[in-house]
Write a protein that binds this DNA or RNA. Structure first.
Lengths: 144, 144
DNA sequence: ATATTATAATTGACTAGTCAATGATTGATT
DNA sequence: AATCAATCATTGACTAGTCAATTATAATAT
């Protein structure tokens, strides 16, 4: 296999491993999973959202959203109520408890991210960000 | 939350999504999962390996390795035999069938990767590779 | 008004990882 | 030689996603 292809494959391998490591470490460090953090954070910024809106923002399957929210609701971190105007929808909202959780893990999270990127310049971070955006678009196009 | 931290969080989010997309698309495109492709490819290049050696190269859990190999063995893509010199070890080797599979998916794979990086310059790819290596190291350090 | 279609959430069955416990074998210590 | 510790593979129970089928509701067309 030619070198360029080998390199790309290697990058995919690294993607997988970095994601796994980061996800694991984030939870150890902050006490909340990265996805559930993301859900709470999105709700904090956007206010009330239906599950489908949340799904579109987070780009994970609706089934996964439903299950996460069930757990977050059990822990009193979100409220869920049917939309009176459209009974198909469930409207989700963060609770005070949920906000407190976000605040609590904030300094851990910051430290965590700082460590991860400690040997990156600001410019490098920008470049990475830009390249990731391109890959998001390209990988999104490949099917559907 | 400050902007830099927000950006980093966003990158982690993109990591997750790119990995998911790529993994999914790769399998659709080539007919084999990226991890199992990686296992076969590693065996092709390294010859016989014990499961623990494979585990160290792929950096995924031993349990996952065992399960993948079981399936690959059922499909006659690898051989597995206890090491006579050390009966704790299982020695794994790719079969001719396994090599054929790798060859078959090769052009699909190449096209797949080309599409994914179609708007990247060679230099950008190199930079990305370098940054991913740094992130691998950094994320590996954060715990154990 | 009724039948059809579309949308939103849920559930079940699946894949691919994790960790922790277990079993078998080997190596080291006394 | 017998015990104790370490190593390797396996298994079971778990998390977090996927897809496909189901249910309930809303919107549309006849």
């Amino acid at each position: 296999m030619d070198q360029s292809c080998e390199d790309v494959k290697n990058m995919m391998f690294m993607f997988k491993n970095i994601d796994r490591q980061v996800t694991q470490n984030f939870e150890k460090c902050t006490g909340i999973s990265l996805t559930r953090y993301e859900i709470l954070y999105t709700l904090l910024n956007s206010g009330q959202l239906s599950q489908i809106e949340l799904q579109k923002k987070l780009k994970i399957d609706q089934a996964a959203i439903t299950r996460h929210l069930k757990i977050l609701e059990e822990k009193n971190l979100v409220y869920r109520n049917r939309n009176k105007q459209n009974n198909r929808e469930v409207i989700v909202e963060i609770t005070n408890n949920g906000m407190a959780i976000l605040e609590n893990c904030d300094s851990n999270k910051t430290q965590f991210f700082d460590e991860l990127f400690h040997d990156f310049t600001t410019k490098e971070k920008q470049q990475l960000q830009m390249m990731l955006k391109k890959l998001m678009v390209n990988s999104g196009k490949q099917t559907g």
